[in-house]
Design a protein around this nucleic acid. Structure first.
Lengths: 205, 205
DNA sequence: TGACGATATGAGCGAATGCTCATATTTTGT
DNA sequence: ACAAAATATGAGCATTCGCTCATATCGTCA
């Protein structure tokens, strides 16, 4: 096994058929990851699942990590979009109504293909995708910060940086744990209420 | 590669020299994991680092996952102990003094060999150690629940199960993120204060 | 239409890894 | 002192995996 360092695509698909190839590879990567996990997801297997030769795979991705990193990026983008849209929606609402809506959105974001989400989250540290995830975290933090700044006079915390850091990680972790390991918590609205309480009480004076 | 399923030790070391062998393997596993990461930590390499033969390794562990799972268990035990001790210490204190102390203890627990902690956390889903971690989570949850029950009349939340779930995951995630990715947040006491605020405000009526 | 770039193919090489097993050494119990 | 049990050894087998490269096919455009 040669040293694997690159995680960026090798070559850009220029014609439509090659774009199809790349799409098929992404879909196959997701399927194989869900089916057998990262360890047993060999590039040969992914290519076979995609119905594409192993050679073609290596035209566009230098290694397995790059495949997974790209998938991470796309999945993250989807989830970010859900959050972004909802942030716009709740901007005019008062805090006590905005917060539950946002939390619901975060749960929804985690529920986009939850099995894939889970595998990717588990493998993120191992592929070069950490940078992507950090970027995403930063962008989500920025969104949140903008919301908090707009409501600066109504909220208690002075150091927005700390507030963003704490709220973001706290809500993300609880949501993550609920969606992936305790889905029964999501049957009722209780968890949303409790999480909203946590956030509200931290924010209001 | 044969199918690897067992993650429990094969044989119990009965004599002292074999207990030494197992200890050496644990230490070597930790070292190699920190040095080269899970993927490049081969059993041959671990045995070599431990200064024992590969055959001996397989006398006590059926595969690499079992080695890492055992290490996870031990590390978790250490961290649990820190929490357990501090829980006893703060039991007689009023909430506003108990909470910051507990949070400090959690940070300390994360700081026991943080590099090892990080690698293990990343790899937990891949080894059979998930069960160990779940157990640990449950035991920590139990500790927390006992504390909350003892103070039942002073706190607001009625559903202790939800409260435990939320507080545990929230504090753990923020601590984890701070220790592993933003250690500068720990230079001052600011994060402890803010986290304490989060918890206090959620708990008090 | 023809020629060149883009894309696709897949057999197979080289390297690494997990793990066994036949053998040797040490400890224990009597 | 000696037999049996426990423990240790490491060469090497079987397998897998990542990846290349020589070759073939397709798309585009003058």
């Amino acid at each position: 096994m040669a040293a694997r360092v690159l995680t960026t695509p090798r070559k850009r698909p220029r014609q439509e058929r090659s774009r199809d190839t790349v799409e098929a590879l992404m879909i196959a990567t997701a399927r194989v990851l869900i089916e057998v996990g990262y360890d047993h997801a060999s590039t040969n297997r992914i290519a076979e699942t995609a119905g594409i030769s192993i050679g073609s795979l290596y035209q566009y991705f230098p290694n397995k990590e790059a495949l997974v990193a790209e998938l991470c990026k796309r999945q993250g983008e989807k989830e970010f979009q859900i959050l972004f849209d909802q942030m716009e929606q709740v901007a005019p609402l008062p805090l006590r109504r905005a917060i539950p809506e946002l939390i619901r959105a975060i749960i929804s974001a985690h529920r986009v293909e939850p099995k894939l989400h889970k595998v990717l989250m588990e493998q993120v540290p191992r592929v070069g995708a950490l940078k992507n995830v950090r970027d995403l975290e930063r962008r989500i933090g920025d969104l949140l910060r903008i919301q908090l700044e707009a409501r600066r006079r109504q909220i208690r915390p002075r150091h927005l940086e700390h507030a963003v850091f704490i709220l973001m990680h706290a809500v993300e972790a609880v949501t993550h744990a609920a969606v992936l390991d305790n889905p029964e918590y999501l049957d009722s609205d209780k968890l949303v209420e409790e999480l909203s309480d946590l956030v509200m009480r931290y924010l209001v004076p």
